[in-house]
Simulated assay, not measured.
Amino acid sequence: METDKRNLGGRPGITVQDVQRACEALRKQGRTIGPTNIRLELGRGSYSTIIRALRNLGLSASSKHKGGE
Rank of each mutant, 00 (worst) to 15 (best):
K28G: 11
N56Q: 13
Q29I: 01
G43R: 13
H65I: 05
I50E: 06
E41M: 07
A22S: 11
E41H: 01
S46C: 12
E41C: 06
I50K: 02
D18K: 04
V19H: 02
R52H: 11
R31W: 08
Q20Y: 03
T32A: 12
C23G: 05
R27P: 00
A53L: 12
N56L: 15
T49K: 07
K66A: 08
L59V: 08
L57W: 09
R31G: 01
E24S: 06
T49G: 03
S60M: 11
I51V: 12
D18W: 00
H65V: 06
A25R: 10
E24W: 04
S46Q: 15
Y47I: 15
L40H: 15
N56P: 00
R31C: 07
L42F: 01
L54A: 04
T49W: 04
L59F: 14
G45H: 01
S63L: 12
A61M: 05
R55Q: 10
K66S: 10
L40I: 15
R21C: 06
T49F: 03
R55W: 05
S48F: 12
R31S: 09
A61C: 05
S62K: 07
K28E: 14
R39H: 13
G34V: 02
G34W: 02
N37R: 01
R44M: 04
R52M: 10
A25D: 04
Q20P: 00
R39N: 10
L54F: 04
R44K: 04
N56G: 08
S48R: 15
L42I: 03
S46P: 07
A61D: 12
G45R: 00
E41V: 04
N56K: 13
L59Q: 14
T36I: 09
Y47S: 13
I50G: 02
G43F: 10
R44H: 00
C23A: 15
P35V: 14
S63H: 15
I38E: 01
H65F: 07
A61N: 11
N56I: 11
G58M: 08
V19F: 02
D18V: 02
D18S: 06
R27M: 10
L42Q: 02
L42M: 04
L40G: 09
V19R: 05
E24P: 00
T49R: 06
S46G: 15
T49C: 09
R31K: 14
R27I: 08
S60V: 10
R21K: 14
R31D: 13
G58C: 09
S60A: 13
G30S: 07
L54P: 00
L54R: 03
G58K: 07
P35C: 13
T32M: 11
Q29L: 06
S62F: 10
A61V: 03
C23V: 15
E24Q: 11
L54C: 05
T49D: 12
R39C: 07
G43S: 08
A25N: 06
K64E: 09
G45V: 03
